[in-house]
Write a protein that binds this DNA or RNA. Structure first.
Length: 595
DNA sequence: GCCGTTTTCGGCCCGACTGTTTTCAGTCG
């Protein structure tokens, strides 16, 4: 690059507090900086692969490095292992320092402007000295971009528009928001005459907790009418591209939507391809190759390039020697091996859920009464609902005094007689106090059907302190479930620092359930940890954390992430009948000696 | 830089679309 900064950058990270996600981000940055500096693209890819691999690890990274077990992980070789080792020791490594000396932070930022990639960024930086998004915008306004080789008026305009869009909109959306926006477009597109099969694909179909863009796939004899409708829908703010097989638009909410039109006989291959994930697809293609096929979005071809017909995805998987892999599992976390060994789990389904726990009422900060919540749950076909109002320390949320707890218990008893066989379980969401104790005396805790213990304050502890605090709460015999285990708020707030594996261990050791908080901006426990929690014998509960009657249906988002976490019916308490839940809770109390 | 029933070198996914070209490079997914 043209002008490296004078002094070498200071270590950018404190090695003591470096997390797995920090390391992944650094490796990603290295990958991007390698691209910009024109290094071997496969070397760059090796770093981004390694970053992805780290993101999917559930064990403690620091321990994996110390025990050298990380070297066994596919995608991490000796060199990158050494870099990570160095990161934990010194907060940096040689290549990282070298690259940061060459590529200013602002240049990395420029890559986030859609439509320009490493080649253009390098050219702009080298010839104009532009080193930030702001400087890029200025250069565009002054017409300096249009005269660069390979650029033109249109490219310049697109860059300026992309910067404006980037400023105006988030680049990711909650699953719930993206689904609402996508459904409207999807409905309009599949209503076009001539459309035969259709699918909402991509990360929505895989039920990721956040969504980058929406992929819609349809089959139609003629693509033009479909594309014309799609690109002129009222919610479409910008048409990014339009062609016979692929068009791309941006909605007024900032969400990107891609539409692909293929022939009917290509549907199986295209739907697999456009569902992803990218990592899953790469693995499946590699498997196809080993079996002597070539797989792409249009078909499966043998050595003589003859196509193999597949009427749907199940047929495609079958040809490749695999059971059908549900979309939620297609994240390259062992699903391909399991499908080949006919060992995929039989995933939890919405219909398996017979009731939910952890619902708020007007006793604390909920907006509906006990009766209204119970009736709403019954209308969903549920057999029971469990409350989970805030405990007394949560004054800001109308936390229940002991006297209010008693009143609620009496009302629940009365209602239970009236609406039987529907059952209301009396639970509480007890704050975990700073020292790890719960928020009521034992004799009060003893009278609840269950206790959800949650952190709501004092987020500023270190990971060790926070882990100790929560584990202590889990060791309390009255704690039935751990509420939103990390406290994250998607797209807004990272979870508090905590050793999740230690929480899983504590859950297994103390027979404590882990909550799958199904509120759409939490989805906490993260699905990435569910498989190992399940393998450790931990049971989970899908809790909507409802504050309105409509929120009870959020359990569906919980089912989505539970499926991503490989959970089966037996792994969640909600699949049990009201009588079975009562029996389970009673047995647990007897075992703990608190009945 | 990573990987290996195509093993220690030589691959590493590849097709669609745009904007700039005048036959293709860059970007994206």
């Amino acid at each position: 690059m043209a002008r490296p900064p004078k002094k070498p950058p200071a270590p950018a990270h404190d090695p003591a507090t470096l997390t797995k996600n920090d390391v992944a981000r650094i490796l990603d940055d290295v990958s991007v900086m390698l691209e910009i500096t024109g290094a071997n693209p496969f070397r760059s890819r090796a770093f981004s692969n390694a970053a992805r691999v780290l993101e999917e690890l559930t064990a403690d990274l620091r321990e994996l490095v110390e025990s050298k077990e990380l070297l066994e992980v596919r995608g991490i070789g000796k060199s990158i292992f050494g870099d990570i080792q160095s990161l934990f020791a010194t907060g940096s490594f040689a290549l990282y320092d070298e690259l940061r000396a060459q590529v200013p932070v602002g240049v990395l930022e420029m890559l986030r402007v859609s439509g320009i990639g490493p080649k253009k960024v390098k050219l702009i930086h080298d010839t104009l000295g532009v080193d930030s998004v702001e400087a890029l915008e200025r250069a565009g306004r002054e017409g300096k971009l249009a005269v660069l080789p390979g650029f033109g008026e249109k490219t310049q305009l697109n860059i300026l528009r992309a910067i404006a869009r980037m400023r105006k909109y988030e680049d990711r959306f909650l699953y719930s928001e993206a689904l609402a926006a996508a459904s409207e477009i999807y409905d309009a597109v599949r209503a076009v005459p001539g459309v035969r099969r259709h699918l909402l694909g991509g990360s929505l179909r895989r039920r990721r907790e956040t969504i980058g863009d929406v992929d819609i796939l349809v089959t139609a004899h003629e693509s033009e009418p479909v594309m014309d409708t799609f690109t002129t829908l009222p919610r479409v703010a910008t048409v990014v591209s339009k062609g016979p097989t692929r068009s791309s638009v941006i909605l007024d909410t900032g969400i990107h939507v891609d539409l692909r039109v293929v022939k009917d006989e290509e549907f199986a291959f295209a739907s697999h391809y456009f569902t992803g994930s990218k990592a899953h697809n790469t693995e499946v293609r590699a498997r196809a190759k080993k079996l002597g096929y070539k797989l792409n979005e249009y078909g499966l071809f043998d050595a003589e390039d003859r196509p193999t017909a597949c009427k749907d995805e199940a047929a495609l998987f079958a040809v490749l020697g695999m059971d059908y892999i549900p979309p939620e599992l297609r994240e390259h976390t062992g699903e391909i091996e399991a499908a080949a060994a006919h060992a995929l789990p039989r995933l939890l389904e919405e219909g398996d859920v017979r009731g939910v726990f952890h619902c708020h009422t007007t006793y604390s900060d909920g907006h509906a009464t006990l009766r209204e919540m119970a009736e709403a749950a019954r209308a969903l076909g549920h057999q029971y609902i469990g409350t989970g109002d805030h405990s007394r320390t949560a004054v800001y949320a109308g936390g229940l005094s002991i006297e209010k707890v008693e009143r609620q218990r009496e009302e629940i008893a009365r209602l239970n007689e009236e609406i039987s066989p529907f059952v209301i379980f009396h639970g509480i969401e007890s704050d975990i106090l700073p020292d790890g104790s719960l928020d009521y005396p034992d004799q009060v805790l003893a009278r609840f059907d269950y206790v959800v213990a949650s952190i709501h304050g004092q987020f500023g502890l270190t990971e060790t302190q926070m882990t100790k605090r929560i584990v202590r709460a889990m060791e309390n015999p009255f704690t039935t479930m751990l509420g939103h285990p990390t406290g994250r708020v998607l797209l807004a707030r990272e979870g508090y620092p905590v050793n999740i594996q230690a929480l899983i261990d504590a859950a297994a050791a103390n027979d404590v359930l882990l909550e799958i908080n199904a509120y759409p901006n939490r989805l906490d426990l993260d699905w990435r940890y569910m498989k190992s929690a399940k393998e450790d014998g931990v049971m989970m509960a899908i809790n909507p954390d409802a504050h309105h009657t409509e929120h009870i249906a959020y359990f569906r988002y919980g089912v989505g992430v539970a499926r991503k976490g490989w959970l089966e019916r037996a792994d969640v308490l909600n699949s049990r009948t009201a009588a079975q839940v009562r029996k389970f809770l009673d047995a647990r109390k007897r075992k703990k000696g608190i009945a």
